[in-house]
């Protein structure tokens, strides 16, 4: 399965990044590309629990796929959420079911961010996404 265009571009940029500072800068830039959430979307029903930071995940059904929106108050986490969304946005249900997100973050050199420890929200976001789209 080929990568969505934006995902392929992100992968290139992260592959070229040297050191943690450059990766952090890239994450912050990615975070700025997230589609903003309305106040009405920042509600309990969309809140992802199991993160110490506040994280929202909005899952909207479209004709043949899900449309995702995500947000957080933490900037670097917003970047991780953006990297997640570029990988899954617009995929059909069948394609989404096939995606190995752990492998995706590993390719980006960010596998450590998937730790199930509570301090990082990404693990909980992935669980929430797979529940919401199951």
């Amino acid at each position: 399965m080929s990568l969505p265009l934006e995902a392929a571009e992100a992968l290139l940029r992260f592959a070229e990044a040297q050191g943690w500072e450059q990766r952090a800068r890239l994450l912050m830039q990615m975070g700025d590309t997230l589609e903003p959430l309305s106040e009405a979307e920042k509600v309990e029903a969309n809140r992802v629990h199991g993160c110490e930071s506040v994280v929202w995940l909005v899952t909207e059904p479209r004709a043949k796929h899900w449309h995702f929106k995500a947000g957080s108050e933490a900037r670097l986490l917003r970047g991780l959420l953006a990297l997640l969304l570029v990988r899954v946005q617009g995929l059909t249900h069948e394609e989404l079911a096939q995606v190995d997100l752990r492998a995706w973050f590993t390719e980006l050199g960010l596998e450590r961010q998937l730790s199930p420890s509570r301090s990082n929200g990404l693990h909980a976001v992935l669980q929430r996404m797979s529940q919401a789209t199951a």
């Binding site: 943690w20 952090a24 957080s72 509570r118 301090s119």
Partner: peptide
């Protein structure tokens, strides 16, 4: 600055401190 962001950059630099509640 969000505390999760501080925790992130400290972790990247090998500093083990606690962030959160």
């Amino acid at each position: 600055v969000h505390n999760a962001d501080i925790a992130h950059v400290l972790t990247e630099q090998g500093i083990a401190v606690r962030a959160g509640h």
